[in-house]
Amino acid sequence: MVVKVNNLVKRYKELIALDHFNMEVKEGEILGLLGPNGCGKTTAINCILSLLSFDKGEIEVFGKKMTPNSYDIKKKIGLVPQEVSVFNNLTVKENIDYFCGLYIDDKKLREKYVDEAIEFVGLKDYVKFYPKKLSGGLKRRLNISCGIAHKPKLIFLDEPTVAVDAQSRNFILNGIKKLNSEGSTIIYTTHYLEEVEMLCKRIIIMDKGRSLVSGTKEELKAMITTSEKIVAGFLNIDDKTIEKMKNIPHVIDIEKDDEDYIIKFENGVNNLSNLLEFIKDNNLTYTKLHSQLPSLNDVFLELTGKELRD
C-alpha cells in the first residue's frame, strides 16, 4: 500500500473537516477523490503530506509513518497544488529547474528531467516566458510540471484543471494517464465527474469530511438502486399519466427536468420496450427518448440526497 489513512479526524475549531476519514491507495493506481467543494479533499491531502496537523488518526506513506521530517518519503512525492504555486519572477524553465533541483542534485540528470517535463506539458515554446505572460491553462501546465519534473513515485494532483480551457484540460488529463503508465501512483482530487470517470481506476466519494464509498466506477454504480435512466419528452402528457407511468415494471421514480422527464429504473431488463409499450397504450406523442446508464452523480445523489455541484 502506498498510502494508508486510518480514522483521520481534523477539526477547524467547531467545524469537523475530516470525520474519521479512511483511504488506501495501491501502487500504480489512479485514485480519484471525488466530492463537492469544501468536502475535505484538499484537507485530506494536506494532512497526508503533513502540512496540516490533525486531531486523530494514522497516516502511512510508503509503509512508514508520515511526519514533517520524513525527508526520505518526501523525496518520492510530487505535489500539484490547487493554486498555481510558482515564482512570478522566474521564467518557465527557471521555475521547473528550481523545483526539480530541490530533489535532484546531479546537474546532467536534472537538465534531462527539466527538458522532459517541459516537453511533457507542452511548454517548449514558452520556456523564456514569465508566468504572468501565460494564459490560465498554460500556468496550470507549468504548475503541474513543477510538481512532476523530478519523476516522483507518488503524485498528488489537487484539482489541476480548475478554470482551464478545454484544450489544456485534455492535455492535462492525457498527461496524467501517461504519468500513471510510466509507473507513478496518482491521487487525484476533483469535483468534475467526467474527469474521474475518464481517469481513475478507483474512486472514493467524499462528503462532509467522510469517505462515503470507494470502489471502481462500476462497483460504485452497482451500489445504487437506479440502474438505468430514460430521458423522455412528451407533447401531450398530464400528471395522471405520469402517476400511471410509475406502475411500469422496475420504475422507481420520475423527475421533471425542464420540459423533459427522467424515468429511473431499478435493475431490470426491457425497460425501454416497456416504456414504449406504455406510450403506445396511452396514445402519447414523444419528442425525445434516450436511455442513460447511471452516472457517479447519481451515486452521489442517492448517497447524500444532493447533487455533486450543489
Binding site: N46, L49, L51, P68, Y71, S85, L102, Y103
Partner: peptide, 13 residues
C-alpha cells in the same frame, strides 16, 4: 503563500 505549501513538502529543512 502557495509556494510555501510546495516548499514545505520538499526534502529540505
Amino acid at each position: 503563500s502557495n509556494i510555501g505549501e510546495r516548499l514545505n513538502i520538499v526534502p529540505l529543512k
